[in-house]
């Protein structure tokens, strides 16, 4: 191994580097969420930017190969599972909410409307991506 590693990734094994990336990503996300909840938006965004920047920088500061085709395969399987689970859940929940709303057992509020729109947009993006990759 050459001695060109710098900063956070210095002298760390590939496994440690991967864990560091995960930890920094979690730190960034939690900081954003907690900071926002505590009404500290600038601190939240500052910590988020620092955490994500450090996480993204690590692969560029190590000589180790951190991600290869197996990681890509694992990522695609996890994404596929997530989309399938999310899809089945949506297929059950939203029609049920429509029926409950029509029978006055449920009232659409800002949260449920936002979730419904987000779900619709996620699947619209998925549909566009699916069409694009099928056509390639």
């Amino acid at each position: 191994m050459t001695q060109t590693q710098t900063g956070l990734a210095q002298n760390r094994s590939p496994k440690t580097c991967k864990r560091l990336i995960l930890a920094l990503g979690v730190f960034a996300g939690v900081s954003l969420g907690v900071g926002s909840a505590l009404q500290r938006p600038f601190i939240a965004v500052g910590l988020y930017v620092v955490g994500m920047t450090a996480a993204v920088a690590i692969p560029y500061t190590t000589d180790h190969l951190l991600f290869d085709e197996r990681d890509d395969t694992i990522h695609r399987r996890a994404s596929g599972f997530t989309m399938a689970a999310f899809g089945w859940l949506s297929a059950l929940v939203f029609p049920s909410l429509v029926v409950l709303s029509a029978t006055d057992y449920f009232a659409w509020g800002p949260v449920s409307v936002t979730v419904a729109w987000t779900t619709a947009i996620v699947y619209m993006i998925y549909g566009v991506a699916l069409g694009y990759y099928r056509g390639r």
Binding site: P14, L65, L66, F67, D68, E69, R70
Partner: peptide
């Protein structure tokens, strides 16, 4: 082969 050691291990163990 420009892959990680874990990938070689997974192939050898029939896990990938």
């Amino acid at each position: 082969l420009d892959v990680s050691r874990q990938t070689i291990n997974a192939i050898e163990r029939d896990r990938y």
